[in-house]
Design a protein around this nucleic acid. Structure first.
Length: 409
RNA sequence: GUGGUUGUAGCUCAACUGGUUAGAGCAUCCGGUUGUGGCCCGGAAGGUUGCGGGUUCGAGUCCCGUCAGCCACCCCA
């Protein structure tokens, strides 16, 4: 039987690479003092309608929704922010006196037509910095994301930022925008969008060139200051970004800062991570006034970029234990256990195979050393160690061998 | 979701207008005299041609359906 369309198995080495991406992210989160939050995979459908937005594609056409046995209308989470916002409110995280910087790692579900780099179940690694409207928090999360990608070793991406203003700026701009858009000859979809969600029209790839005449949003003083501060902070931190006045986002809750980390290596799936500020979301959900900023990155897309850029993740044993004669299998197995108990990554293939075959396994597994045990070694209580890169080999006493190997690690 | 396109061994691909037991390279496994990998050489194993119907004396090849992948759009991570 096939897997369901858009769903897939992830097997070594991809599984290892993804967990490395997670590991590196966790390392950075720890350095930045972000705490993990784990939220449910299933929520009431209403949560996403009210937060992500009724008119967004994610909610309108891509959500996996279903009714459970008690007739509750539920949905598989299409993104992480609504759940985190809900958890923040439910658990009164605003009054706990701890910092409210969270990261999450989890799978999301969207019923889109699948393509390379676009799956119906995919993993997002994301952060939410809740409770401050300071531009320093925008800068922090962007710098953190940049740090993670650099630490992974990815180079082929570009950062685009924009400010779409606060609620007040948007309200005024909306009118100006609609007026201007109506003067233009636009594609059918854009025509529909003019009334429903005019800001999204600016994102259209077909009509892109026609928007040069349209005035960009006029930001109020506070929004201008915020955006200016953010840009200065990024520049001072050597974050290489470019401003894209046409950048808007498909989720309704964004205010002020929006940003995307884009790549040219992945075809249409060019966003590897994206996010922005959402100052009104938590309040609009009935929580305290909690301006916030966050982002999410797609683990599979990061993985694909790693492959494009030939970034290697190594998971190789240091030692490979080999018997010259089956008689010494148990003795060899004991050695293997001692190595592992000492924390030395070690493996073996099958002691029944010929020495030649075992050597071949050692090589193809990428082991650095072959440890050979045969009659000579058994009698003298030693182990032959062969360095597989140089071909040099010597006999060592078992205890000394382990001590020396521990120094190498 | 719209429009395309593809599906043959683990992977990448072959098989003239439908015509015997569907091939190759890479990978895998075994071997190339006494206890040594990579390179090289030899051999073996590996396929219900995505699945289900249909046309035909005969289907990997043609037709229909279905499933899945991919590309663009759309959207997004």
């Amino acid at each position: 039987m096939n897997t369901v369309r858009g769903f897939k198995d992830i097997i070594y080495p991809e599984s290892f690479k993804i967990s490395e991406i997670e590991r590196i992210s966790r390392e950075v989160f720890e350095i930045f003092n972000y705490k993990e939050i784990r939220i449910p995979t299933v929520e009431y459908q209403e949560l996403f309608i009210k937060s992500t937005g009724e008119t967004t594609d994610i909610v309108e056409k891509e959500m996996y929704k279903f009714e459970d046995a008690s007739k509750r209308i539920l949905a598989l989470r299409p993104e992480g922010t609504p759940g985190v916002a809900r958890a923040y409110i439910n658990n009164n995280l605003n009054i706990k006196g701890e910092n409210t910087k969270y990261f999450y790692i989890g799978n999301m579900f969207r019923a889109e037509r699948p393509q390379a780099g676009r799956f119906r179940e995919f993993e997002q690694i994301g952060v939410e910095y809740i409770g401050t409207n300071s531009a320093f928090s925008d800068a922090e999360v962007i710098i953190m994301l940049d740090t993670i990608l650099k630490k992974i070793g990815i180079k082929s991406y570009q950062i685009e930022i924009n400010s779409i203003g606060c609620f007040e700026c948007r309200k005024k701009y909306r009118e100006v925008l609609i007026e201007n858009l109506k003067k233009l000859e636009l594609c059918d979809l854009c025509k529909q969008r003019i009334e429903r969600n005019p800001l999204r029209v600016l994102d259209c790839k077909i009509d892109k060139e026609k928007f040069s005449s349209i005035p960009s949003i006029h930001l109020c003083g506070n929004c201008q200051d915020h955006h200016k501060t953010l840009k200065e902070l990024l520049t001072k931190s050597n974050v290489d970004y470019k401003e894209n006045k046409l950048l808007v986002r498909g989720l309704d809750y964004y205010t002020r800062t929006v940003f995307e980390f884009k790549t040219a290596e992945l075809g249409s799936q060019d966003a590897i991570a994206a996010g922005g500020r959402y100052d009104d979301l938590i309040k609009s959900m009935g929580g305290p006034n909690s301006p916030s900023v966050g982002w999410a990155m797609g683990a599979e897309r990061i993985l694909m970029l790693c492959e494009k850029e030939n970034i290697s993740f190594k998971n190789k044993p240091l030692c490979f234990v080999i018997t010259a004669d089956q008689k010494y299998s148990e003795y060899a197995f004991e050695l293997l256990s001692s190595l592992r108990n000492s924390g030395i990554k070690s493996d073996f293939s099958s002691f029944h195979q010929s020495l030649k075959s075992q050597m071949r396994s050692a090589n193809s597994n990428g082991a650095r050393y072959a440890l050979i045990i045969g009659e000579e070694e058994f009698i003298s209580n030693t182990v032959t160690i062969k360095d597989l890169s140089t071909g040099e080999q010597s006999k060592k006493e078992k205890d000394n061998l382990i001590k020396e190997l521990l120094k190498i690690i």
